[in-house]
Design a protein around this nucleic acid. Structure first.
Length: 136
DNA sequence: GCCAACGTTGGC
DNA sequence: GCCAACGTTGGC
């Protein structure tokens, strides 16, 4: 099992909407690094769900429902999408600031590469997020 | 709303 | 293949 993190602006698609919808197509990614990460996602992998711009916190855990397929929003085979569903909400959000101040979490792409919207997370980092949020 | 970071584009 | 210009993202 692998772990990942995706960013979403709450104005566009908040965690609560994912919970309501039960599933969503994660499309529109137009960055090769993020695309490569999408392609590596396997069904059943868990994905930390981060709210950017507003909230600035990891608020939930999503699950990969469907592995990569061509992005339906563009007629270009270079870009792919996956399907995500809600897995579990965090009891307490883990803010960007908490990540920055934590030895294990500060090495995440979230901190080091601010503009990346899809990135891998190590099992250690994933565990730490659950532990700090009281979700474990 | 500003600005830093950084990826992409296009001229040479 | 380099690099300047430009666009986008996202924190503040």
């Amino acid at each position: 099992m692998n772990y990942w993190l995706v960013k979403s602006e709450p104005i566009k698609y908040p965690w609560e909407k994912l919970v309501q919808d039960k599933k969503t197509v994660w499309d529109g990614v137009r960055n090769y690094q993020a695309r490569n990460t999408l392609q590596a996602m396997k069904k059943g992998d868990l994905v930390l769900y981060y709210h950017s711009n507003e909230g600035l916190a990891i608020v939930g855990i999503a699950k990969v429902l469907k592995e990569q397929f061509p992005d339906p929003t563009i007629d270009d085979p270079r870009w792919v999408a996956v399907e995500l569903g809600p897995f579990k909400a965090l009891k307490k959000p883990i803010t960007l600031e908490m990540c920055r101040n934590n030895d294990i979490l500060s090495s995440m792409g979230l901190i080091r590469q601010g503009r990346l919207s899809v990135m891998p997370v190590t099992p250690e980092q994933f565990d730490k997020v659950l532990e700090l949020s009281g979700t474990k």
